[in-house]
């Protein structure tokens, strides 16, 4: 157990500068987007004194800014879901030799990398929430008092499409769906990596087939609309999801313990 925590700390520590980097990136892009929008509206305001601009409206207008702000971090984190493994295999002194030969088995190694990725993802989500407050402060600071219009903070939150659709969907079902699929995606990626590291080219083929299989099985129940109630379909999907998560974990643990080559 302690090996797991030590390894997790190691993984987080190794990534800290990149994580800080994408956090700063998000901060800058969103601040700039907000500033630009306020600036735009200022010109309009000079022309029409009644045209107030609320924080929620700012957010509503800067959706492309938000999209830009999260697309890079998402790409980076997806890439790192693969690199967190591959970086230890390549180079002059492959660290994987050490990671594979510490007392305590391979499970801590696997779970530490998995948890690390999840931690990074959730950190970014949390960071995005923090940023909303930061942007609010920026709004208050930049917008002339006359132009401001008070709104509930929640309205601003719900104006954010990025939040609504991806990061913090208002309904629990959507939230569970997004994050469940996200976790499953990472699990499948990990399994793919381990397949490649165990069987090289055959592993890539196996990984692709495996991924396709997972996607197909998950979507399949939704085509039964003619035969089943939607709540039943949802239940089946949930079960398939659970099985796929279990399968991914099981296959990955077997591969990392017995089949992987340094």
């Amino acid at each position: 157990m302690s090996q797991y925590f030590k390894l997790l700390a190691l993984e987080v520590r190794r990534f800290r500068y990149v994580l800080a980097g994408i956090m700063v990136y998000t901060l800058i892009v969103e601040c700039v987007a907000v500033a630009l929008d306020i600036n735009n509206h200022s010109r309009l305001f000079e022309w029409n004194n009644d045209s107030r601009h609320s924080f929620a409206e700012v957010i509503r207008n800067t959706q492309s800014g938000f999209q830009l702000a999260i697309v890079i971090p998402v790409a980076v984190l997806l890439a790192y879901a693969l690199l967190i493994w591959y970086r230890d295999w390549f180079g002059r002194h492959p660290f994987i030799y050490r990671q594979m030969t510490i007392p305590g088995g391979r499970a801590p190694l696997y779970f530490s990398k998995l948890t690390a990725i999840l931690l990074f993802v959730f950190s970014m989500v949390a960071w995005q929430l923090v940023l909303m407050s930061v942007l609010r402060i920026e709004y208050v600071w930049l917008t002339p008092d006359a132009m401001q219009e008070a709104v509930d903070f929640t309205e601003a939150m719900t104006s954010n499409e990025v939040f609504n659709t991806f990061l913090l969907p208002p309904s629990f079902k959507a939230f569970a769906l997004n994050y469940g699929l996200g976790i499953l995606l990472i699990l499948i990626l990990f399994t793919g990596v381990l397949m490649e590291r165990s069987y090289r080219i055959m592993g890539i083929v196996a990984g692709l087939i495996y991924a396709a299989l997972n996607v197909t099985l998950l979507i399949l129940p939704t085509t039964f609309g003619l035969y089943l109630y939607s709540s039943e379909i949802w239940a089946i999907c949930l079960i398939v999801f659970g099985l796929e998560v279990a399968a991914a974990l099981w296959i990955s643990l077997i591969l990392v313990s017995k089949k992987v080559s340094a």
């Binding site: 190794r14 002059r92 002194h93 492959p94 660290f95 030799y97 050490r98």
Partner: peptide
Amino acid sequence: SFIPDHAAMPG
């Protein structure tokens, strides 16, 4: 203990 032909530590 295993001593491979490299240091096996991050650069």
